[in-house]
Design a protein around this nucleic acid. Structure first.
Lengths: 145, 145
DNA sequence: GATATCACTTGTAAAAAGCAAGTGAATTTT
DNA sequence: AAAATTCACTTGCTTTTTACAAGTGATATC
């Protein structure tokens, strides 16, 4: 009936991150929003890793409560909601990219992923700017490039 | 009787990271090693956030199995073991620092933590080099500076 | 009006985390 | 050299989370 259990609340910066996204699903949802432009409950559910529907609901609530994402009605479909990253959520982009970068050193990346890795190395700031731009475009209802 | 449950194994770079350190404790152990120079079971146990002893044992086993840390005997005390970051574990430093950086934007940092945040902004590469140096010094048994 | 879609909720089982106590080997104390 | 202590865990049990399956209510489509 609650969010995701105990918090460390020790003042530690790493612990605060862990409290916010330290579980098996949260970062994948943020990845979906940030990197794949997904934004509805249904899109998160069918995103490949098979998150359970109740767990997804909990995570989204938690992220909303933490101010990482925000939920609005879809103006074009009254039974749909749109989830967007807030500034705080978008600020997780460097974390996501460093995780990807780390993993890229230890597992094989397919073509698409390798090109992301390449871009991280060659044009990290530009990539971050693009992700921010896309997130904001999405938020204001525009199509992303 | 096993490590930490289901893996996503989807090829996703973020998912691989989550599989490796996506839980409430793993990143704190890595933080302890990387930032606080802790290296024994006892030091991890009493590190402030009160991890349960059996959970710590599981996490250490998992990290060792994943090649993130390595366990050696303490040459000075035959009942003690020393845990060190491997190259793979040390490569997590940028992830840890980005998490700290993100958190630093949203919670208050005390003096010591703020100086870490300042150093991340002003001399990230130097800081990373120092952390690597310290980790390696520790590994070869030298005192860290 | 019937059927499908979307975003969930509810109930229950399985897994993991948390808690307390215990074990065995090495070390220190007496 | 026997006794007490330390260190690194393990074991057993309870509580909390996660996972799985099915169900609900409000749109929307056929």
């Amino acid at each position: 009936m609650s969010d995701q259990g105990k918090k460390h609340r020790t003042g530690c910066l790493v612990a605060y991150g862990v409290d916010t996204f330290g579980d098996r699903w949260t970062l994948l949802v943020i990845r979906d929003m940030l990197l794949h432009g997904r934004k509805t409950y249904g899109e998160f559910l069918t995103a490949g890793e098979d998150i359970a529907t109740n767990v997804l609901a909990l995570r989204l609530k938690h992220l909303e409560a933490e101010g990482v994402i925000e939920k609005t009605r879809d103006p074009d479909n009254r039974r749909s909601f749109i989830y967007n990253l807030t500034e705080k959520g978008l600020a997780l982009a460097p974390v996501i990219l460093e995780i990807a970068r780390w993993s890229g050193k230890y597992i094989e990346a397919d073509e698409g992923r390798q090109s992301l890795l390449d871009r991280i190395e060659e044009d990290r700031d530009g990539l971050l700017a693009d992700l921010a731009r896309r997130a904001k475009a999405q938020k204001s209802g525009r199509q992303n490039a």
